[in-house]
């Protein structure tokens, strides 16, 4: 089995405004190993979110090759891509993006509804995911009844409930206060270290990026440099 989780070759992405081509990413070559924890950094407009969207399979490149979790995404149609995402990718958004009419349990269950699982197995997995984020006691609460930190933990549980190989997080701490942001980052790091998830994180925040093992810096749509993080915070063991 390939040890590379994300492999990008000469990846490019452009947008069109009428007849005007606006390049967003150019000539991206990148390999992220399975179980890697990478932070995408760079100024606004550098293309980090676009790169994350391409890796997550919710956007399509204009050129180059894109291989994620052992699948080439270039040739997949929309439905195949949706199926691939449902099996391989967990999403964490800045604004949590929970479904407001579903409670915490039902939100976490959502990705499992796309899989051929019985109610009992879904329940077992949801409860396990909720226990990992320490929210079992709030599972009947609706998003409006949860704090921002709790909502993000529900979103993290939703991202891991179907046991994806890759977790993508777009500014996951952007809407959180310092304490909750730190908790969310510690949780992500545990998912990486103890469950072996590959994590790609987009952030502006150097503190958030310091939890990653590598920081990839983008500048004007080009990969500027990759920096290994040496002085990462020491983690207490949380997950089992």
């Amino acid at each position: 089995m390939d040890d590379v989780s994300v492999r990008l070759r000469n990846l490019a992405k452009s947008y069109w405004r009428g007849s005007l081509e606006i390049p967003v990413l150019t000539g991206i070559d990148l390999e992220i190993p399975r179980g890697g924890y990478y932070a995408l950094m760079g100024p606004s407009g550098s293309g980090k979110t676009t790169l994350l969207n391409l890796i997550a399979g919710i956007d399509r490149p204009s050129g180059g090759e894109l291989e994620v979790c052992g699948h080439s995404l270039n040739g997949l149609n929309d439905d195949e891509l949706a199926g691939w995402r449902s099996r391989n990718v967990g999403f964490i958004f800045q604004n949590y993006n929970l479904v407001p009419v579903l409670n915490a349990y039902e939100n976490v269950e959502l990705p499992l509804l796309l899989q051929d699982l019985g109610r009992a197995e879904r329940r077992e997995r949801v409860l396990h995911a909720l226990s990992l984020v320490n929210l079992t006691d709030r599972m009947r609460n609706y998003p409006r009844q949860l704090s921002g930190g709790q909502e993000q933990r529900v979103a993290i549980a939703r991202a891991i409930v179907h046991d994806p190989e890759l977790i993508v997080a777009d500014e996951p701490t952007g809407a959180l206060d310092a304490k909750n942001a730190e908790e969310a980052l510690i949780l992500l790091e545990h998912l990486n270290q103890e469950l072996g998830k590959t994590i790609v994180l987009v952030t502006h925040d150097p503190k958030a990026a310091s939890h990653a093992r590598f920081q990839i810096h983008l500048e004007k749509g080009v990969l500027d440099r990759t920096v290994e993080v040496h002085d990462r915070p020491v983690l207490p063991r949380l997950l089992t």
Binding site: A56, I58, D78, A82, R87, F91, N97, V99, R158
Partner: peptide
Amino acid sequence: QISTMRALGFRS
């Protein structure tokens, strides 16, 4: 919400 669901793997 709809885009989030599609990102999670819901087909069009």
